[in-house]
Amino acid sequence: MPDQLADLGRFADPSLHILVALSDGPKHGYAIMAEVEALSTRSLGPGTLYGALARLERRGLIEALEPEERRHPYQLTPAGRAALRAQLEQLDGLVRTGIARIGPDAP
């Protein structure tokens, strides 16, 4: 499967965080921001959040659900779940290799 996040430029990293934030169920914008901040200690600006949401939605990786209390929750699509899994497995391989190469911390 082609790398769905490869051509997202500066939105690639926020998009990955958003996909992870949505991996345990639908969330609306504010909840996604809070989740990303909790997961990574990085703050996600509102312009970046919606720039990334628009890209993910156009690629069919997420979809908007019916509004709840004026807010649109978003959820992962099957393609989004597959793309997230592929990205995380790629990162997992990188992390394992890196950790193995640098070895244990010196005392």
Binding site: H28, Y30, M33, G45, P46, Y50, R71
Partner: peptide, 30 residues
Amino acid sequence: RYGHELAILLEDRPPTARDRVDLVRGAIDA
């Protein structure tokens, strides 16, 4: 498509100066 949602988000979480810069960048990007 997204203006209404973003307006609600900004009501819930009033933007800081950094957020405003991010919104301007987001508008150029859009």
